[in-house]
Amino acid sequence: MSRVAYVNGVYRPHRDAVVHVEDRGYQFADGVYEVWSVFDGRLANFDAHMTRLHRSLGELKIRIPMTREALTQVLRETVRRNRVRDGLVYIQVTRGTARRDHVFPGETTAPSVVVTARPMDLRKADAVAKKGVAVITQPDIRWGRCDIKTVGLLPNVLAKQAAREAGAAEAWMIDEMGLVTEGGSTNAWIVDEHGVLRTRDVQANILRGCTRAALLDLVRETGISFDERAFTVEEAKKAKEAFYTAASAWVMPVISVDGAKVGDGKPGEITKRLRRLYLDRARDEAI
């Protein structure tokens, strides 16, 4: 199946989908992005992702490129044209194309908008989750505004590559106090040795994960013991369970950290329950 991308008002074959060489996203990482899960052709956790997109644009003072309604139509049309039933849809918005200069271009510069979509094999994803995955730890060398979902992802790329080379699925980044901040593209969670579910609070300058927020709503409904508090690498290794969350991974069980087995080395019961609950709700509420 040939893929289709939306680029600045035009739907193009994927091979022809290009932006200008002086697009500020390419030259300065001056842009933001967002990703939605797609179930049965519908976008999951829609409002949370749209709200975060607008917040990221506002924090970087990038003009919102179109109305919410128009953008929603573009997202849905890109999904439709790519015939994606289950998968992901991605949007990237940059400050636009202008002569290379560090300061912002004039207000007449139009933002650049790119939207793509691709399918995912849900059966394969479930098979991975049934076994669980490994993570490694890496120093957190990212910039000081990790709460903005910017396209400046080089530190994340380096961390994810280190994980790949170590045979792991993700890298959990560690701050100067030895605490886990988050993953290269995910939020990190444990069920600690006392049976308390823990993840770092968003005031600590981490990405405000939409999947993270949706899962917290489920946690409150189920009455699972929870503490929004950071944890160390050693606490993760001693934990009963661990997992990470993202729009592309949902709730993914972690069975080892830096080679140390978490719990009994298998996905835990709380993790498996939260994965089921999250996927059920995400499918039901997708639009």
Rank of each mutant, 00 (worst) to 15 (best):
A48H: 09
A239I: 01
K238I: 03
M173E: 09
M120F: 15
G25Y: 00
K266I: 03
T78R: 07
D121I: 00
S37Q: 13
K238Q: 15
I224T: 15
A70Q: 12
V133C: 04
A236T: 07
G209H: 01
R198Y: 07
V233Y: 05
S2A: 12
I64F: 08
A134Q: 06
A163I: 00
D121R: 02
G263M: 05
R283E: 08
I255Y: 06
E69F: 08
R12L: 15
D30V: 07
E235K: 05
I91N: 07
N82S: 02
D101P: 10
R281C: 00
V202M: 08
F39G: 00
V151G: 01
T94S: 13
L158S: 03
R15Q: 15
R229D: 08
D16V: 04
H54T: 09
E182W: 06
V74Y: 02
E34W: 03
I136A: 03
L71D: 05
A236F: 03
A5E: 04
L88F: 11
K261A: 01
L57I: 07
R3L: 08
D121K: 10
W250N: 10
D227T: 06
T137S: 05
R76E: 12
S256E: 09
I141G: 07
R12N: 08
A129N: 09
E269A: 15
G183M: 03
H49Q: 04
A260F: 12
H20T: 06
T271G: 06
L215G: 00
L75T: 08
G178Y: 08
A249D: 07
R24D: 04
K130T: 12
V262L: 00
D40F: 06
E59V: 12
A286D: 09
V251H: 10
E235P: 11
D201A: 15
A127R: 08
D192Y: 01
L218S: 09
D217S: 14
L60H: 01
F243W: 13
P13A: 13
A166W: 05
A117F: 03
A239Y: 04
P111C: 07
G144W: 01
H20C: 08
P105S: 12
D201V: 08
M1E: 03
A214T: 06
R273I: 02
A168Y: 00
S37P: 14
V103Y: 14
T78P: 04
V84F: 08
P139G: 11
V21L: 12
S185H: 11
V103T: 11
A168F: 00
D101F: 15
G183D: 03
A17Q: 10
I91Q: 00
K237Y: 01
G41H: 07
W36F: 14
N45R: 14
K272L: 15
R100Q: 10
T51W: 06
V180E: 01
E182N: 12
L218C: 10
F28W: 11
L153K: 06
A159M: 01
A70R: 15
I190F: 00
R80T: 12
L88Q: 09
V21R: 12
G9E: 10
L179I: 04
E285A: 12
